[in-house]
Design a protein around this nucleic acid. Structure first.
Lengths: 217, 217
DNA sequence: CGTCTGGATATTGGATACAATCTTGCCAGC
DNA sequence: GCTGGCAAGATTGTATCCAATATCCAGACG
């Protein structure tokens, strides 16, 4: 049982706010009233504020003194920028990670990819984004570069809101499955550059789909 | 006069804490007692805690629930990693920025480089690190990629503590002057790749010196 | 003699109360 | 009718107070 209740209220608030952001329960541009959030979550304003400070640091919300916090709005330019930075940093992570991949890492990757599929088949969008993230960061973390992982997490966080949109489409789900498979094949073969290319293609399809969704909105 | 008093106490606390971290007044590994900081700065613990949350997000301090905040300790591995990420991201920033540089940008860059020299001659280490940072980010910001600038700032923040060490050496100060000059020449000529190379050499010398200092400590 | 348990103390986490700032809408003056 | 300012309400920012948790040390027990 790895079922640890958060040791502090701020941690609980933080993960709940993250969930609400990812699911769109809190929509971009929406002002965040501290008192209301506190009451909803059954805590006082203090832990809410500290959680919001963390989210501000991640760029998920923006803060104006004496005016309050607002859910960040991502422009198309922002999105393109985030994906360009991901391109640079993920290539580095994969190049370092692939030669270091152990058999257990590969097993974990295969399992995570299977989880993505399973969640996809049952239409569980949240579970799918979670498993997808786990899959990719298993690979990135294998590079053994904590600062890089951390930076990549920030970039992923910034676009998490739109990732769920992506996964809700059936054709996208099919494509993701194949792309993960391609990546796994490259990893198993120890072919670093093929892995980099696979990740690039995967990300490219994602940015195209999400950009389209964003323009419609 | 761009001398704006912070609109909130947390902002004041944050910048003061940053200063204390950069100057080494708060040394790596040192525990940060909230009550003591609050009293020193003449505020209550609440704004101190929110400022610490921001610094935690930047990796400047680490936090353990119910144990408190501690000034982050940077290992040699960390340092190497930070510089590798800077290499990737700064190259991107420069490649995008150089073709977009306006005459006014160049003027500002020249002025900032002069500020670095001036501070160096008067032995003002703090002023030198400040001007140096201004110089480099004038260039990076010119890329018009806010997310990239933001990420680079985080990476610079992480090693700020050690940058002062670097600037306190006379030979390093001389070298920095020449390297800034080289970079400016490349920028004026609009030679993007030369600028990337100059920045690379500049950063390389810095990491070597700081790593040496870190190993001694 | 070492280890574990229980309680005293210090420090952090959270709740409540108060102050400062912003927003909204109304009214006077032009 | 429009503009500017003023007052009331709402919301955030800060201080203070209380609760929860960790640390440390003394003493009991094996």
């Amino acid at each position: 049982m790895t079922f640890v209740r958060p040791r502090t209220a701020q941690e609980a608030v933080l993960s709940e706010l993250r969930r609400m952001l990812v699911t769109g329960e809190l929509a971009p541009g929406e002002p965040l009233r501290q008192e209301a959030l506190a009451e909803t979550l059954g805590v006082s304003r203090v832990p809410v504020r500290e959680a919001l400070k963390v989210l501000e640091g991640e760029g998920a919300v923006v803060h104006e003194p004496h005016k309050g916090y607002v859910v960040a709005e991502l422009s198309v330019d922002d999105l393109v920028e985030v994906y360009r930075l991901r391109e640079l940093l993920e290539a580095e992570a994969i190049r370092v990670a692939v030669p270091r991949l152990a058999a257990t890492d590969l097993q974990a990757l295969v399992a995570a990819a299977a989880d993505v599929d399973a969640a996809g088949r049952s239409g569980d969008v949240t579970g799918m984004t979670e498993a997808n993230r786990r899959f990719h960061f298993l690979l990135f973390d294998a590079a053994g570069m904590p600062r890089l992982s951390r930076t990549l997490r920030q970039l992923w966080d910034a676009t998490d809101v739109y990732r769920s949109v992506y996964f809700s489409g059936v054709t996208n789900r099919q494509r993701v499955k194949h792309e993960h498979h391609d990546l796994l094949v490259a990893l198993r073969a120890g072919d670093t550059e093929a892995a980099v290319r696979a990740q690039h293609a995967h990300r490219d399809n994602s940015v195209t789909a999400v950009t389209a969704a964003l323009r419609r909105a």
